[in-house]
Design a protein around this nucleic acid. Sequence first.
RNA 1: GGUCCUGUAGCUCAACUGGAUAGAGCAACUGCCUUCUAAGCAGUAGGUUUCAGGUUCGAGUCCUGACAGGAUCACCA
Length: 596
Amino acid sequence: MELQEKIISTIQIAFKDLFEHDLNTEGISLQPTRKEFEGTFTFVIFPFLKVTKLNPEASGNKLGEYLVANCAEITAYNVVKGFLNLSVSESSWMNVFRNIYENPNPAQTTPNGMKVMVEYSSPNTNKPLHLGHLRNNFLGFAVSQILEANGYEVIKANLVNDRGIHICKSMVAYKHFGNGETPESSGLKGDHLAGKYYVIFDKEYKKQINTLKEQGSTEDEAKKSAPLILEAQEMLRLWEAGDKETVDLWKKMNTWVYEGFDMTYKKMGVSFDKFYYESNTYLLGKDIVAEGLEKGVFFKKENGSVWVDLTAEGLDEKLVLRGDGTSVYITQDLGTADLKYDDFKIDKSVYVVGNEQDYHFDVLFKIMRKLGRPYGDGLHHLSYGMVDLPTGKMKSREGTVVDADDLIQEMIDTAESHTKELGKIDGFNEEEAKELYETLGLGALKYFLLKVDPKKRMLFNPQESIEFQGNTGPFIQYSHARIASILRKADQVGVDYSLNGFEELEKLEGAERDLIVMLNDFQKKLKIAGEEYSPSVIAQYMFDLAKEYNRFYAELSIFNETNAQVQAFRIAISAQTAKTIKAGMKLLGINVPDRM
RNA sequence: GGUCCUGUAGCUCAACUGGAUAGAGCAACUGCCUUCUAAGCAGUAGGUUUCAGGUUCGAGUCCUGACAGGAUCACCA
């Protein structure tokens, strides 16, 4: 970073000296030189031709000469068309490396004094987690880590959707067909047990619809008058009225589900600082509706329903309270937004929710800003695309849903068989081996889901996606294990690879320099990932770094190197790579093994 | 139908926010284990960036319009 800043400021001075023109540093950007040209940084001349009043070649030469003469770090330049390629001296790169090497944790930054809440996961309690939830959870957790590394104080929140008609469906089915089954008696995880009855409800409900249709009802009539759906609606009314028997059943089943979720969260390696439950928040927001009416942000229609007019912002009129005074979905979201602020005085609030709710959050945020909330500008919807299967969209009714627990287990099993196939399990005891399989299986899964730009929908092919070669989590983990092995040997042999081990070294191999350039980029990538709420930036960087390291590893020998300073330096650069991989993968929620 | 998102190698994804001859991985093919872990490295092949216009020194990236896929537009959540 410092190196680039210095070059940029010299360019700024050069424009003043050579062309009598004031440039501010933001207008100057350096980009990496393409591999086929000499140099590491490239300055594009084209935008400045009006200032230089010379053709691109002449401008580049004049500027290049100036920089070589006035910037100690720059040793050479060449001009290709309008591109000025700058070569940085080897000793400058050594200085860059010494600077970053002194920092024990590359992902550590100073607090920025701001608080951000990241809401993610937010499951329904009527069925277990599936593949789509995995993307949500991994994204939410990773973004939280990334924001923390960018200096924020982060509160990870989970808003559990634990009430409503869908829960009542599971309850009704359980009442009729459950026969007192429990997680203990059935051996089923609690969330899977609840999910089982949700499916049963749907099946039995459909039977009733068919029967009614045979008796002459239309599809719509049948759907509305089937006894099971009426019962579920009645149960919702009873629940809202606080009926003891209903509430007890609700509590019992939800407890099972939470126990199941806890196990899955633990396995996934995600965690939360604060749980919100919709059963507590679903009545919130009515005071905000009143406030909005008073402020003239909302308006009332003849039947008493309350609306917001967002046509000036390019949206529609949107209902915020029903005519009978009851809430709609967005009413409680208004209330919950305030609740979060009241609880934590947050500066920013991130919602990790699928892109099918883009419109909803657009509306919600615009309303909060119209109401002048202090956190209004800090609201952000981290919208992510669906995960598709090769067969198309996942549909619970068609049984094409990929269950989260099953998939995780499958990944771990695959990691196990693959490791055994490669015969890489010597020297591991049973417990270590088990831990390794989990690390690799989950690493593969998390990396696969995080490496893609969140907003894009992605394809999950169960067969092909579970790879361990190429652009995968295990490839990066493998690179770390290789380095760990080198460091063990270095310690064993007694090499001093601290800074003084290579004090006088000034020369560099190409592979060494390329690696330093990569390592130096980490801070920049971390910042971009934070600004864009995008773990894929880190994931992509991790892969590039690992790849660069493996090239270095293949090209240069460490323990056959006779020059002690060079050897110490190569170990140091390896150690720094390992540190960076470990820190970066941790941001993604992925562990890295020391042996594999 | 209105609005929003997406469209890049056979497949899965990149492209530093407008820069050079669009890059990786998988799959295919060719080399490299007597040397620090071959879950690796080097190489070959693979492209009219869906299409048609426009903006400018320069467009995968920006604007317009088609086409294709998806989402959304409930007094549902």
